[in-house]
């Protein structure tokens, strides 16, 4: 393991009723200005880079995932649909498709395309920017696709435009091209060595940073780790501080390398940064 060490920062604020989630906290993202977006209940909440609540608005259904594009449009994945808001929270578009957008648990962008993970059908869908369906990713192969007993499809597009997708039932992170070619995978099962993925199905969630590092969360026991692109473990960010019953802890990384992770049981957003990082 590398010599990087992380320290815990104060949680993203939840002082005052507006900044708190009442029943569910599912999706997390950061934008290019390091603002933090969280969805849960039936609301989007935006915090500034220091964790203060800036804005909030309702969604028509409880959000499962969130992403922000280069024009600050906010995409919220829900059951049966994707809602798209402008930066002020005005609803700009809704993409509905009961079978292709069964339960949208991840969203990211590649070029002008929008990629969404549909956990109901265990597939990543590729749409153009206008919402026209293009192709599936990770579904039509002989490997039985994504095995997700944990119930979420999770992926992120790296700086090279490669889709890094969690396949927790196989204890792997798989790499796909936009046209559904499997390039390979990293990761293996190991219940003792922290370099491996433990339990029945891990990692559950992931994010990538600008350097191509892959940040993952695991369940039972909750843990946050960072890997290099080649699959070597860089650091264990955290293995405590979460409710032990957590699963599917969403994760996001900002431009400073700060790591944000949801605790969906305590409805908190935990924050970490490397030792010695300028706060």
């Amino acid at each position: 393991m590398g010599s990087m060490h992380y320290r815990r920062l104060p949680n993203v604020r939840r002082d005052g009723p507006d900044s708190r989630f009442a029943t569910a906290l599912r999706g997390l993202a950061v934008d290019r200005r390091d603002r933090i977006y969280a969805v849960g209940d039936a609301e989007v909440k935006i915090f500034d880079r220091d964790g203060r609540l800036q804005r909030r608005w309702p969604t028509s259904r409880p959000g499962c995932s969130v992403a922000v594009d280069e024009y600050d449009r906010v995409y919220v994945g829900e059951t049966g649909q994707l809602e798209i808001f402008d930066a002020t929270g005005r609803l700009a578009d809704v993409w509905r498709h009961a079978s292709r957008l069964g339960r949208v648990t991840a969203i990211d962008f590649a070029g002008g395309d929008v990629l969404v993970g549909d956990a109901n059908d265990r597939a990543i869908r590729r749409y153009d920017e206008h919402g026209s369906f293009m192709n599936d990713i990770g579904k039509n192969n002989r490997m039985q696709g994504f095995l997700i007993p944990n119930g979420v499809i999770e992926f992120a597009v790296d700086r090279a435009g490669v889709i890094q997708a969690a396949n927790p039932g196989k204890h792997r992170i798989e790499r796909y091209t936009l046209d559904d070619r499997l390039l390979g995978h990293i990761g293996r099962f190991d219940g003792v060595d922290p370099a491996g993925f433990p339990g029945c199905c891990n990692p559950t969630n992931l994010a990538v940073d600008v350097r191509g590092r892959i940040y993952v969360t695991e369940k039972a026991d909750p843990r946050v780790k960072v890997y290099n692109d080649d699959g070597t473990l860089v650091a264990v960010v955290a293995s405590e501080g979460f409710d032990p019953n957590c699963k599917n802890m969403d994760i996001a990384v900002d431009s400073r390398g700060r790591v944000y992770v949801t605790d969906p049981v305590r409805l908190d957003i935990l924050a970490f940064e490397t030792e010695g990082a300028a706060s």
């Binding site: 007993p149 099962f189 433990p198 339990g199 029945c200």
Partner: peptide, 12 residues
């Protein structure tokens, strides 16, 4: 879940 690594079957 019909898992590959079942924590009830294996001592994980």
């Amino acid at each position: 879940g019909r898992c590959y690594v079942c924590p009830a079957y294996y001592n994980i």
